[in-house]
Each structure stands twice: as structure tokens, then as C-alpha cells.
Amino acid sequence: MKCKVQLIGRLGAEPEITTLPNAAQVANLSIATEEYWKDKQGQAQRRTTWHRVKFWSEGTIGFIERNIAKGQLVEIEGTFRYEEYTDREGVKNKVPVINGTNIMPLSFNEGQAASGAAGEGSGAGNGEDIPF
């Protein structure tokens, strides 16, 4: 069985591409999603949730480097897991992380062209099928 995640949100920072000691690369993204509702008094409420997303595919990392930037609205697909780390005080912690498999820009920054999606199992499109 598998836990599949789909997010639509905005990048809160520029993608961070890191090269690991084994020469593999990882792209780290910080994605904000928002929920809106009205409380019992009829007042509009909003909640922002931040998500850590990691991409490991070389092709997708290249796409992210060329096409994804802070503030962009993106759709992310991936799987959910927890990563463990030990803080400075020696306490072990777990944080939720999404291992991204696909990313599609839903908005474009100035100077960017609509170049489609990137990810395992999806190629780059020409943007003609975008309905807006």
C-alpha cells in the first residue's frame, strides 16, 4: 500500500538544490497551502500550513532549477513519510516530509514560459492544454 499526496500551494523560498557526499542531488522546497472557512460567528478564517518537499530525480531537479521560483503556485505529487533527526540537545525528532515525484507550475514568474510538468512518468509539455 502507498500514501499518495497532492498539494497545490506557493513556494515560500527559492528551491534549495544540495549535492550529497555520494554526488546525488536533492531539491528541497518549502510549500505553503491555505485553508479558508467561516467560524461559528460567520467570521472568515484562514490557516496556512507549511510542507517540506524533496525531489530526488535528476530530470525533475533540472526542471526545478530552470522553471521554479519563490512565490510560484505549483502542484506537487508525491508520497508522505517522516524523517528523523537529532537536535542540538540530543533529542530525537520526527518531521513530516513529502518525497515529490511530480511538479507542475500553475503560475509563472516574469520571463518564464509555460513549459509543462516534470517528474517521474511525465514529460515536459508545451503549455497549450492550460485552460487559462
Rank of each mutant, 00 (worst) to 15 (best):
E89K: 13
G78R: 00
S30L: 00
G127Q: 12
E58D: 12
A23Q: 13
I98G: 00
R47P: 11
Q43T: 12
G111R: 06
H51T: 00
I130D: 06
W37P: 13
Y85R: 01
E110M: 06
E77H: 10
V74C: 05
G59E: 13
R81L: 02
R10H: 03
R66M: 05
K4M: 07
T33K: 07
V26T: 14
H51D: 04
V26I: 14
G62E: 15
G12T: 04
F132T: 09
V53W: 01
E14H: 04
G90M: 08
M1S: 12
W50D: 02
I76C: 08
E84G: 03
E14Q: 12
N22M: 00
K54E: 10
D129T: 14
E110P: 10
L7V: 03
L20K: 09
N93A: 06
N102S: 09
D39F: 08
L73W: 01
G121R: 11
E16L: 03
N22Q: 00
R81W: 09
I31R: 07
I31G: 09
K40Y: 07
L29H: 00
G78E: 02
D87I: 04
A118H: 04
Q45P: 02
Y82Q: 04
R47M: 07
Y85Q: 01
L7E: 01
E89I: 08
L7G: 03
P131C: 13
P15A: 12
A24D: 10
P21V: 07
Y82H: 09
G111C: 02
T101N: 07
